[in-house]
Amino acid sequence: MRPHSLLLITSLIAPLGVLLAGCQTMTPEERRAADETTCASYGFKRGTDAMARCMLDIELDRRAEGRSMQSRADAMMWRPMVVERRVIVERR
Results as ranks from 00 to 15, higher is better:
16 L>V: 11
29 E>C: 04
90 E>D: 15
75 A>T: 11
25 T>D: 13
22 G>V: 08
30 E>L: 11
45 K>I: 04
70 Q>R: 13
45 K>F: 04
26 M>Q: 15
19 L>F: 13
49 D>P: 00
81 M>G: 03
83 V>I: 11
26 M>Y: 13
4 H>R: 09
72 R>F: 08
2 R>Y: 04
14 A>F: 09
80 P>Y: 15
91 R>V: 11
91 R>A: 13
35 D>T: 06
52 A>G: 01
30 E>A: 14
36 E>F: 02
91 R>L: 11
85 R>C: 10
52 A>L: 05
19 L>D: 14
67 R>H: 06
31 R>L: 12
19 L>K: 10
40 A>G: 12
69 M>Q: 09
91 R>D: 11
21 A>H: 01
6 L>P: 08
15 P>I: 01
66 G>Y: 06
43 G>S: 00
27 T>D: 00
40 A>N: 13
47 G>V: 00
62 R>E: 02
33 A>N: 08
34 A>I: 03
19 L>C: 12
63 R>H: 01
14 A>S: 10
49 D>S: 02
86 R>I: 01
73 A>P: 15
14 A>Y: 06
54 C>M: 00
51 M>C: 10
61 D>H: 11
34 A>R: 06
46 R>E: 13
8 L>I: 10
36 E>G: 05
68 S>T: 14
44 F>M: 01
4 H>D: 15
86 R>Q: 01
60 L>P: 00
77 M>C: 08
91 R>Q: 07
36 E>A: 09
62 R>G: 01
2 R>T: 05
84 E>L: 07
74 D>V: 11
20 L>I: 14
81 M>N: 06
27 T>R: 01
82 V>I: 06
58 I>T: 05
64 A>G: 04
22 G>F: 05
11 S>G: 10
63 R>G: 00
81 M>C: 05
80 P>G: 04
40 A>M: 11
87 V>R: 07
44 F>A: 03
12 L>V: 03
12 L>Y: 03
78 W>L: 07
43 G>T: 00
58 I>G: 10
49 D>T: 09
79 R>I: 07
18 V>Q: 09
78 W>C: 03
71 S>M: 15
42 Y>H: 12
91 R>M: 09
74 D>W: 15
42 Y>F: 12
37 T>N: 15
21 A>L: 01
5 S>R: 13
20 L>W: 15
12 L>P: 03
64 A>E: 15
37 T>R: 14
15 P>W: 00
51 M>E: 09
26 M>V: 07
42 Y>L: 13
73 A>C: 10
76 M>V: 12
32 R>H: 07
20 L>H: 15
56 L>R: 05
84 E>V: 09
11 S>T: 12
19 L>V: 10
76 M>Q: 13
59 E>N: 12
71 S>T: 12
72 R>C: 05
15 P>M: 02
62 R>I: 03
13 I>T: 14
54 C>H: 02
37 T>K: 15
81 M>K: 12
27 T>S: 00
39 C>I: 02
60 L>D: 03
63 R>S: 01
62 R>Y: 05
16 L>W: 09
61 D>T: 08
59 E>C: 05
40 A>D: 11
92 R>M: 11
84 E>R: 12
10 T>K: 09
9 I>C: 07
56 L>F: 12
47 G>M: 01
